[in-house]
């Protein structure tokens, strides 16, 4: 009985949870990075590079980016399904969205790899 209320694959519930968890991860990371930027008066390459050389900073940044991409997927998916009515157009946009998010992920991996 309860199952039929939640739907077949529980997508809505998963989306809801993904959006919240990713939001909290991004909030913590952003507040950290913003306070670092505001408190460090003259930021130069040496300091900036050193910050991203730490293993924990790379891990936190990857965690942030993964959260961002999942968050963007749920958000943009919602916007597309609400405003783009023709199925084919919406499908194409969703495929492009997916491909863009995957490429953002690999791009950020390469950026952090190079530090």
């Amino acid at each position: 009985m309860v199952k039929s209320v939640l739907g077949v694959n529980h997508q809505g519930l998963t989306d809801w949870l993904v959006q919240r968890v990713s939001a909290i991860v991004m909030t913590v990371y952003s507040l950290g990075l913003i306070s670092y930027l505001v408190m460090t008066q003259d930021i130069d390459y040496t300091r900036w590079h050193a910050l991203f050389s730490h293993g924990w900073m790379k891990l936190a940044t990857i965690l942030f980016i993964v959260s961002l991409l999942f968050h963007a997927w749920v958000g943009m998916w919602t916007v597309f399904t609400d405003y783009i009515k023709p199925f084919v157009l919406r499908f194409i946009l969703q495929v492009l969205l997916f491909l863009s998010l995957v490429s953002f992920f690999f791009a950020s991996l390469m950026i952090l790899w190079g530090v």
Binding site: Y45, W48, F52, S100, A107, S108
Partner: peptide, 13 residues
């Protein structure tokens, strides 16, 4: 997002 990633990439290279 792409602009931010591009800026991050330049700032760290």
């Amino acid at each position: 997002i792409p602009l931010i990633l591009w800026a991050l990439s330049l700032s760290l290279s």
